[in-house]
């Protein structure tokens, strides 16, 4: 799925903040993690800040903090902040032929699946799934030497 660069940066940053509840995270730290410009990221974060899901504190020890509900906020909510409501988007004028109508139906099918996916993925789900993958990776790493020893014996 193609998203605007600002939307993608916002998703990374907001999920990163949500994974560190109660922590003031400096913008430059997030920028460094994801290899992006601090200035650009600060501009991007103004939108979720106005929406009340990211708070910021100035000065030493300051930074950004996730202030939303990670169990309720979905990817759709973030995409909507930056790209508007996908469900209210009007399809461009198309010639009223059977072929154009069928093309429109297929595109609507793709949109419906995309919207359902975005609406069903909460930030907490992303965080939990990322943790699960990390745990599995570590467990697999721990198993490797055991396997190697078994093969040698």
């Amino acid at each position: 799925m193609k998203l605007n660069q600002a939307t993608r940066l916002a998703i990374w940053s907001i999920v990163e903040l949500a994974s560190r509840p109660g922590e003031q995270v400096p913008v430059n730290e997030i920028a460094q993690i994801y290899g992006i410009s601090q200035h650009h990221l600060a501009k991007v974060l103004r939108t979720p800040s106005r929406a009340g899901i990211v708070g910021s504190t100035r000065g030493p020890g300051g930074g950004c903090e996730f202030t939303g509900n990670a169990n309720r906020l979905t990817l759709y909510d973030i995409v909507q902040l930056f790209e508007g409501d996908r469900e209210e988007e009007e399809a461009p004028e198309a010639p009223s032929t059977p072929v154009a109508a069928e093309v429109a139906r297929v595109l609507a099918e793709i949109d419906r699946i995309t919207t359902a996916t975005l609406r069903s993925v909460t930030l907490q789900t992303i965080i939990r799934n990322a943790e699960r993958k990390e745990e599995r990776r570590k467990a697999a790493e721990n198993l490797e030497p055991v396997d190697a020893m078994t093969e040698r014996s």
Partner: peptide
């Protein structure tokens, strides 16, 4: 159902995906 967002969220929260 594709419009059952709450139920879909539940299954996704359990690690399920398409």
């Amino acid at each position: 159902h594709i419009d059952e967002h709450v139920l879909m969220s539940f299954f996704r929260s359990q690690g399920m995906a398409a």
